[in-house]
Design a binder for these strands. Structure first.
Lengths: 246, 246
DNA sequence: CGAGGGTTTGAAGTGCATCAAATAGTGTGG
DNA sequence: CCACACTATTTGATGCACTTCAAACCCTCG
């Protein structure tokens, strides 16, 4: 469908990952792009599947996760608009390193990885941009690791909220809306739902924020910052961006 | 000193990270390379320092770590021969993202990052190789995160030992030598020295391995594998390589 | 209105951290 | 080669954070 291609084109042009792609190469990308819409629960692929495509989230939310031999499912990341995933399979035996599941109704664009490789070879500035993308991702992972090991449950939740606050918020009060299930947030932060619930209560006590359902009210941003960021090696506003952002 | 340059040259040619570097560019690298020798305890740089150099470990061991506001020092990684560090500062505001300290007498080669950037721009295959390096690093980080969150202390130690076992060891019995302090291994694995000591004892009970001082005897590799790898999403032999390997 | 998932609460257990102190190891100068 | 100083490692006792299991509650959606 042409209208779909146009939609894809409009969207991809806004994703900085593709900014440095040559017109020639970009054309081929669009040509081979598919846009699909999935409901909550749809498994896009499973860890270990052979891959020749990678993906860009246009809307909705996607969970990346693994599975251990004893059945635990660690969450790798949870992605939304503008985020790219499975792009690193070019280098990893063309096998997906994790599974992907739609957790909130999502529009997903899929693209052939071969074009990524081609673009990197032909276009130095694209390759450099790609490198930059990987470096950012790596740096974000490093920080995620740190926060997982060093921050306790309430601090991790506070940190999660802070990352939802728009950058230019200053010290004003903010109202947030949680983007997905609390159970899923808990998994993303590496804790049990029960722990999340209790830790959230503690966070409210300690920092004065108010949480009703999926709504978070923060009156004193400072309180939250000093509570959460004390156990973090980045200052605030911290650059613990979600990985894979394009 | 010329003899130092020759030593650097000999060594760097064996590091796969530089394999795809053009002769021209490689020559410039060698020209601007410094080899330094440091004793245990030497701080090479501190997180936040401005940087225009990156490093390759020729021998010895180097600890990368951060520091949080409340004084905790999470270990990022511990590197040895052939490992590269601070190479990602090209993309990160030219600031070191962590501190580096020599933990076992080490020979360190330092090189200007500007040449990395130049080489990536001029030579597509170098850029691709660099990308591959970053992707491997990122994948290793992902697994480290997983192991930190999902494996318990004895399992992490077992996993650490398994990564010290030479690849082609089959099911034979193996004797290992711990590369550095147990206290440091503990830090690397995100636990306290006391916990390490107790967890090691438990690991010995459960898997039949024997540890005396810095010597580890593993009779039944299988035991260790099934004990440790059950809580891991990679199979065995697992590819949880130390990051930053060149 | 009832079914089913998300969320909270309670009670009990586990793993790791912390503090304190003993022991083993290592390198030093005499 | 020994005694001392200093560090690494182990051991014991205790506490806290998080998990686990069980059950209630709440909310939404057919």
């Amino acid at each position: 469908m042409d209208c779909s291609k146009e939609k894809i084109d409009n969207f991809l042009r806004s994703v900085s990952f593709f900014k440095t792609c040559s017109e020639d190469c970009y054309g081929k990308l669009i040509e081979n792009a598919f846009l699909t819409v999935h409901k909550k629960g749809k498994i896009l692929f499973i860890q270990g599947d052979k891959s020749d495509r990678f993906y860009v989230v246009m809307s909705g939310w996607v969970k990346l996760y693994r599975e251990t031999l004893d059945g635990v499912q660690p969450v790798v990341d949870i992605l939304t608009t503008g985020h790219i995933f499975a792009e690193d399979t070019i280098f990893q035996n063309k096998e997906y390193e994790y599974s992907a599941e739609v957790v909130e109704m999502a529009e997903i664009i899929s693209l052939p990885t071969s074009l990524l490789e081609k673009a990197s070879e032909e276009n130095a500035s694209f390759a450099l941009n790609f490198l930059k993308h990987m470096a950012r991702k790596s740096s974000a992972q490093e920080k995620k690791l740190e926060s997982m090991v060093i921050q306790n449950a309430p601090q991790r939740i506070g940190c999660f909220f802070l990352r939802l606050v728009p950058q230019d918020q200053g010290h004003k009060s903010v109202t947030l809306h949680l983007p997905y299930d609390k159970t899923l947030i808990a998994a993303r932060l590496g804790m049990q739902p029960e722990t999340f619930s209790r830790a959230l209560k503690k966070l409210m006590d300690e920092t004065g924020i108010k949480v009703k359902g999926a709504t978070v009210e923060i009156d004193q941003l400072d309180n939250l910052v000093s509570f959460s960021c004390i156990a973090c090696s980045s200052g605030f506003p911290c650059k613990n961006l979600t990985t894979c952002s394009g």
